[in-house]
Design a protein around this nucleic acid. Structure first.
Length: 582
DNA sequence: GCCGTTTTCGGCCCGACTGTTTTCAGTCG
């Protein structure tokens, strides 16, 4: 059972307990455990086997016992009993906007509604207004929310799409009269791989005129809410936007608040309370009522004696402990990247020739670039055979000659890891390449043991330098392959193979949690765009965002290294081969 | 239900916005 499956059980339990009217703190305890399990860097099943469940934050005696029962028996009596008591489908109502646990419970008890379909029918027939506290507007809101839910398959949109929209909206916000500053916040600013709403904070002295201007934007489908400091809107395609307007002298606390995460902000406010301060989006308040205003985020953190914490770390995953100990990591930055290790040219399925790629890399300030076209067994993309690899090597040489020394082109390949873990080229060919990215593109659904053995075997080949898009997932489209990631990380660390953080917004593979686990195993990372077009080289920022969420420092990312250091690392395999031969 | 260099019991963030019940509960982030 995977972490996500375990997390789902406890999330469901929290929903049902909340509908049942249990103590909110018990519910919150289940929610906390859910989040911790979901983002836990190791397989909880392994943690269970090691008898270390209580090492997971938020997991105490009671929840540890339940996890144990889940792994031992595959089910959980407590959960089964709860489902007999409260219809499980009621939990689906909680996703409907404006419906929380209290209303869900009353729909069930007073009107016998247990499903979304039932709720919709009742709202259409005007039966909801028979309940105290419910009127016509509530019915309309629920019908609109149900329709919005259907429009959007999942509640969250991929970061890539969110960032495109956000950039557009931000430019418009900044051009409004009276706006002194406008910034993105929320999970977008934290570089989460998916984003719920687009959150923005605006600094303006005249809040009202700004809010008025915004709600008149032509692409707004409807206004979800509007008050003194906050506006919520729905844009086309079900995109939701939240915007806070605060005076410039309060911008810091407002931006911190809007950036979250919720868990991070809760901790921050607890910190404030310890020091006799109450923190909100408006600033700090002392017990005597006096305010401390923060125009910048730095002031928010420094008021509590903390260094500014980068948004990517704000998940309550140890950043406070690190900040207090003065051990926040120096995170990798996009400007640290000196090279690109994974690109495709016209030789396989890229869209431009090698020269164009190299020139684009050079123009972006990169010092080196590795051409890694596909290998032969990937026939549909014209993977290269041994003869074409040799031809390509000659072309790389000649282009290098004509380009001069501004950018160095290395000749590599993205080699298929075949279904049995063998590589698509013999060692003699691999050894002649400057760099080898090994990747899985086919038979992605092998059983766990087989898939793991396959990847581990490839990693152990001394000619392999980078494991490309390690899990094969496509965000929202294809699940990751079933792999024992601990075994993959252990092997990669042992053989000094770098793990790719594929920058394509559809992949983001490894993701943040996996990459952090990999770093714990002592692995190195490679932030690669897998570019098939020069424009794709710009996607580096996504990989950097993901790496920063993984707490990656510059030195852990091999393509931040100067070329000489990179070549030393690549040269290690010659040593390994010699060792193998005794 | 979890957690603790103030605590093993008594705490567990803070405010905005909405609809409807004319003073507030529920929802949301």
């Amino acid at each position: 059972m995977r972490n996500e499956e375990v997390a789902r059980v406890f999330d469901r339990i929290a929903d049902l307990l909340e509908i049942k009217g249990e103590s909110i703190y018990r519910v919150l305890a289940y929610r906390r455990a859910t989040e911790e399990i979901r983002s836990y860097p190791r397989d909880v099943e392994e943690v269970w086997k090691a008898g270390e469940l209580k090492l997971i934050p938020g997991v105490g005696e009671a929840i540890a016992e339940k996890i144990d029962e889940l792994f031992r028996t595959g089910k959980l009596d407590y959960y089964e009993n709860l489902k007999r008591e409260i219809p499980e489908s009621l939990a689906d109502l909680l996703q409907v906007g404006g419906v929380g646990p209290k209303k869900a419970a009353r729909f069930w008890k007073e009107l016998g509604i247990t499903t979304r379909e039932g709720l919709e029918a009742a709202a259409r027939e005007g039966r909801l207004r028979s309940m105290e506290g419910m009127g016509e507007k509530s019915e309309t809101r629920i019908l609109e929310s149900l329709a919005a839910l259907r429009r959007r398959e999942t509640g969250r949109i991929p970061l890539g799409r969110a960032r495109e929209s956000a950039a557009r909206l931000l430019a418009r916000l900044r051009s409004l009269p009276g706006v002194e500053r406008a910034e993105a916040a929320g999970s977008l600013r934290r570089w989460r791989e998916t984003v719920g709403d687009l959150d923005f904070v605006v600094a303006a002295t005249q809040s009202e005129s700004v809010r008025r201007a915004i709600v008149e934007w032509s692409d707004i489908v409807r206004v979800l809410g509007q008050g003194e400091t906050k506006v919520s809107l729905e844009l086309q395609e079900g995109l939701r936007l939240q915007l806070w307007v605060h005076p410039p002298e309060r911008f810091g606390s407002a931006w911190q608040y809007a950036t979250g995460s919720q868990a991070h902000s809760v901790r921050l406010r607890e910190f404030a309370l310890d020091q006799g301060l109450s923190l909100s989006e408006h600033g700090f308040k002392r017990t005597n009522g006096k305010e401390i205003l923060c125009a910048s985020e730095e002031e928010v953190y420094s008021t509590l004696g903390l260094p500014w914490i980068p948004p990517e770390l704000r998940e309550d995953r140890g950043e406070f402990e690190a900040a207090r100990a003065g051990r926040l990591p120096g995170l990798v930055e996009e400007s640290d990247l000196r090279g690109e290790l994974h690109t495709h040219s016209l030789w396989s399925d890229g869209t431009v020739d090698i020269r164009e790629l190299a020139e684009a890399a050079r123009d972006m300030g990169l010092e080196y670039l590795v051409i890694t076209d596909h290998s032969k067994s990937l026939g549909m993309v014209q993977g290269l055979d041994e003869a074409r690899v040799r031809e390509q090597r000659a072309e790389v040489k000649s282009i290098q000659k004509s380009l001069g020394s501004d950018v160095r082109i290395l000749h590599g390949a993205e080699v298929e890891i075949l279904a049995d873990g063998q590589l698509d080229f013999p060692d003699s060919v691999l050894a002649g390449l400057d760099l080898v990215v090994a990747s899985v593109h086919t038979s992605l659904r092998q059983p766990r043991a087989q898939m793991t053995e396959r990847v581990v075997r490839a990693l152990a080949n001394p000619n392999v330098d980078v494991l490309g898009h390690p899990t094969g997932r496509l965000l929202g489209k294809r699940d990751p392959s079933d792999l024992d990631m601990d075994a993959v990380f252990r092997t990669a660390a042992e053989h000094q193979v770098a793990l790719e953080m594929n920058c394509h917004p559809e992949r983001l593979d490894l993701n943040d949690i996996q990459a952090r686990a990999a770093l714990d195993f002592g692995c190195m990372l490679a932030i690669d765009t897998d570019a098939h077009h020069p424009d794709h080289l710009r996607l580096r920022e996504y990989g950097v965002g993901m790496a920063r969420r993984a707490w990656a420092a510059k030195h852990s990312v091999v393509n931040t290294w100067p070329l000489a250091d990179l070549e030393t690392w690549l040269g290690r395999r010659k040593g390994a081969v010699r060792r193998d031969r005794g």
